[in-house]
Write a protein that binds this DNA or RNA. Structure first.
Lengths: 151, 151
DNA sequence: AGGCGTCATTTTGCACGCAAAGTAATTGAC
DNA sequence: GTCAATTACTTTGCGTGCAAAATGACGCCT
């Protein structure tokens, strides 16, 4: 009776519990879920918050610039920006000199939202409760991964 | 001229590039994108592949068991399982003795798909090209994070 | 037995994520 | 200058991810 070919066989490379990717996937989802509560006061989803952070940092950019910085697909950004516009947080205008391009900028309301958003990183850090060293290591490994998978 | 209150001010906790979560989010999306190509031969999405891995490992489970193991929401599993059923990869039956519960099991075709799936982890490892030590560290940090955010 | 709270699953509604196809405006080749 | 290739963005279609509400079955209390 060497093995037991069906259920509960010897460990396999396909075991869910050994998959790094599954852990990463679960962690990303868990984080978005954690953000959801903190962001609902701001009436933002996590991706919308990312876009606002990008714009708070650098305003008046084209959609393709925003896409590069946030790493969101253009096809994802179009409707997301429409929602931010509906909330009056941003302005979108056609670029002068190149009518294909659009320029996105933060509105006055969008700028004032930044003050409330400033509390969010601390709240998340508190919920996650991970030593700064580990957080940096994690960030570094994720960035490496993104780099390897680019394209 | 101490500061420059608008664009390009001093670094802030809201800078996108310092957000661990944004790196994690991007990495998870990049990984799913990488899986997409390898899984299209199997006609599976990444979440469907996760469910199949879970079932290959342990068959004949209820949906809530599957939900716990895969960490997918029940409301996500219902339509996902319907698609796997449409592809004849799994069988779903009402549990005897408790008609609320359903029991999910791998079909013969689902079992034969496992052989093709066995190549996937190696292909991903190759695309990612990360030292085993780093991969384990990454997995560990993600699991810690999931643990802290549980609830 | 009847009723009620709990449990397992499904449904609904909304927001991504992204490949692929579509639409304009711009650039480049000649 | 003309026209094809390219670029910037939008649209479409499908599959999640998840909160919240709905459905239906169980189990327990009396």
């Amino acid at each position: 009776m060497k093995k037991n070919k069906d259920q509960q066989g010897e460990p396999s490379a396909l075991d869910l519990d050994r998959q790094v990717c599954h852990s990463l996937y679960s962690a990303a989802n868990a984080l978005v879920r954690a953000y959801r509560q903190m962001l609902e006061k701001l009436d933002l989803t996590y991706p919308q918050y990312v876009v606002m952070m990008s714009l708070w940092q650098k305003d008046g950019v084209s959609i393709s610039n925003l896409s590069a910085h946030t790493r969101f697909d253009a096809g994802t950004l179009t409707p997301l920006l429409r929602r931010l516009q509906d909330k009056r947080l941003i302005d979108v205008k056609v670029a002068k000199g190149d009518e294909r391009r659009k320029i996105v900028s933060v509105s006055r309301q969008g700028r004032s939202l930044k003050k409330s958003a400033e509390k969010v990183p601390g709240q998340i850090a508190c919920a996650v409760d991970m030593p700064a060293e580990d957080a940096l290591k994690l960030k570094g490994l994720c960035e490496t991964l993104v780099g390897k998978l680019k394209r």
